[in-house]
Amino acid sequence: MSLAVQGLCCVDQGPDWVPAQVRTYLAHVTHGRSIRSLAREAGCHASTVLRQVRRFETRRDDLLVDLALRRLEGVAARPDRRAVTPGGTQVVMLNRKPEDFAVPDDDQLKEAAPRILRRLNEPGACLAIAADMEKAVIVREEKDGQTLRTAVVDRALAEAMVLKDWIAPQGEGRIQRYRITQAGRMALKRLLAEEEALRANMGEGMDPYSEQHRDWARRNADDRPNKKRGIRYNAAESPMTALARRKDRGGAPFLTADLVAAGERLREDFELAQMGPRITQNWERFLEGGARGSFNPGGAGGGSSRARERVTAALSDLGPGLGDVVLRCCCFLEGMEAVEQRMGWSARSGKIVLRIALHRLKGHYDETSGNWSPMIG
């Protein structure tokens, strides 16, 4: 049983989306549970619980956080809008409307979150709300300075999102503005992956928590707009993506789009070559000077034989050294520091060798098959 459930098992906890640290805070502040008792039940040190309580006590300066905690305190205390003091006196909770106690359930939040987060993920978008506003609005600032309203959000949903750290405040003023956080973008990816899996009737085998870390991209060798035969890859996974974002002294990208596409093209063939019930390929032995004419010494290992031949031809053209760096960075997805240590190179020299290897690899593809990758199968 989690710390939150242990701390608040005697009262109504509300929906499951309420974070565990919020439940701990409410258990201490609203229901009078001591820090030591909560820590004892959770099996942690009292200072851990104290930090959680202080964190949300400090965050109550945030408008939406304070409204959200007041809403949850009202649900956890009494639905008749009365509070009982330690002396037994009933005090009416003033300035509270019945709708202030309505907390969105898990299904409501899951249904509305993709629409809201998608709007907040647009460039220049933010959520605006004031203390006297019953609903929040999402606005987007255009390049010409105009502000366009793109969505209206129930205040309860906005409060839930700020408690889950999907949005964070920016600046101060009577009208508070919130922007999407990295956690909010990851939640958006996860929710969209779940929707896509359900549409494809793959709900049982989906893995939305892995999908939230992926960033799918598609690119051709010369970055043409025609994507008929482009390469689809996970840009957040490849070490080349970080190098492609860097600039040289002249302000140009360290790795151009055609070089990144060449590396992803090799990786695509590498993955196709590994598919099958039995894998006996030893690419490292090939680079170390093993039998260069045979890359499947154990017999048929599955996978695409044509993809295996394309990888073999590319690595043979690059040779040891250059072939090592593209194999480890593009196919094995090893970082540059790991490659430099494995190869015995000096620090920060691997990226130079990788760029040289990618130039050589691009020339190989230009000579053999041109811009378009061969069709799978």
Rank of each mutant, 00 (worst) to 15 (best):
M1A: 13
L3M: 11
D12H: 08
W17A: 05
L26D: 05
T30H: 01
R33N: 03
C44E: 05
Q52T: 04
G88P: 06
A102H: 15
D105N: 12
L109H: 09
P123K: 07
I129N: 06
A130H: 15
A131D: 15
M133N: 08
K135R: 09
K143M: 11
K143I: 13
Q146M: 11
R155H: 01
A156R: 11
A160N: 10
D165T: 10
W166F: 10
R174S: 13
Y178K: 15
Y178G: 06
T181H: 03
R185M: 05
A187S: 13
G203W: 14
D207A: 13
S210F: 04
R219W: 10
A221K: 00
D222G: 12
S238Y: 03
M240A: 15
R246D: 11
L255D: 04
L266K: 11
L266M: 02
M275T: 10
P277S: 00
I279A: 06
N282K: 05
N282V: 08
R285H: 07
G290A: 07
G293R: 11
P297I: 05
G301W: 14
G301N: 08
L318R: 08
P320G: 01
V326L: 03
V326W: 02
R328Q: 09
E334G: 11
M336N: 02
V339K: 11
Q341P: 03
M343L: 07
G344F: 01
R348D: 12
I352Y: 13
V353N: 07
I356A: 09
G363H: 08
T368E: 05
S369F: 05
G370C: 01
W372R: 05
P374D: 14
